[in-house]
Write a protein that binds this DNA or RNA. Sequence first.
DNA 1: TTTTTAATTGATAACAATTATTATTTAATA
DNA 2: TATTAAATAATAATTGTTATCAATTAAAAA
Lengths: 131, 131
Amino acid sequence: MKKNLFKFKMTPQRMAILNYLKDNKDHPAVEDIYKSIITQFPTISLATVYKNLEMLKNLGMLKELSIGQDKKHFDPNVSPHHHLICKECKKIVDIDVKFDLNIPEHSKKGFEIIGSHIEFYGICPECKKKS
Amino acid sequence: MKKNLFKFKMTPQRMAILNYLKDNKDHPAVEDIYKSIITQFPTISLATVYKNLEMLKNLGMLKELSIGQDKKHFDPNVSPHHHLICKECKKIVDIDVKFDLNIPEHSKKGFEIIGSHIEFYGICPECKKKS
DNA sequence: TTTTTAATTGATAACAATTATTATTTAATA
DNA sequence: TATTAAATAATAATTGTTATCAATTAAAAA
Ligand SMILES: [Mn+2]
Ligand SMILES: [Mn+2]
Ligand SMILES: [Zn+2]
Ligand SMILES: [Zn+2]
């Protein structure tokens, strides 16, 4: 039998969360995840969702987005990429374009740059239609 | 005498907030502003600070930063620019470099792009020294 | 200058999102 | 099967922000 190298247990709740996030491109907030899972799993606690997301984030399986100052949003796509954000409906959509973001050394203010993230603001096609 | 075209009153509290923000490059959070002003103004209420910041934002004299999902931060520099963010101490520093962020039409996912903002993550010189 | 009045303030309650706590349950190992 | 550390559910506590409202006050009108 193979030994579990991690000290984590695979619970049905955790499985449901992992399954919800797999291939998810919606950048869901905690409550989105909770509301979806509670339908198949009526006893799950919101705190369980929070704890699992925190754990998955620490394991590097999720990225937490710092978009908007309201709710936490999570991105199962951990490879570097940027986002389009609708000013109307707050939808977050991936943009898979590489940009040249080299900063001249004298503009770095002594910082050691580790990463970057671009937020493009705009109006999504659905909201454009409405107005 | 000149008539006040706005329907706003210039109160001492408002003056203190404006004065604090003038030329401020620290991207302060609400509490930073409150804590500073309360020293010269012991009776000011946190709610007053919130209300004034909201008003200044609506007047276009301030920009609210959506950096981190924790506290609101404000930037009195309303001209488009980007930011360096220290992963350690969360310091936010302006970066005054222009980048070419043109997105090929076929990658816009139907969005109408209005603006953009780059967050560069890294370690600030002070935190680099410590580690 | 003295009303008048609507904006603003301060105090605090309400609220929403997140985190902490803890008794109970359970997956994994032996 | 028994043991045990991790996870869960329920809920209290905390944090940041917004709403409410009576009292105050800056500015306009008289
Ligand atoms: Mn994404
Ligand atoms: Mn700035
Ligand atoms: Zn939209
Ligand atoms: Zn730092």
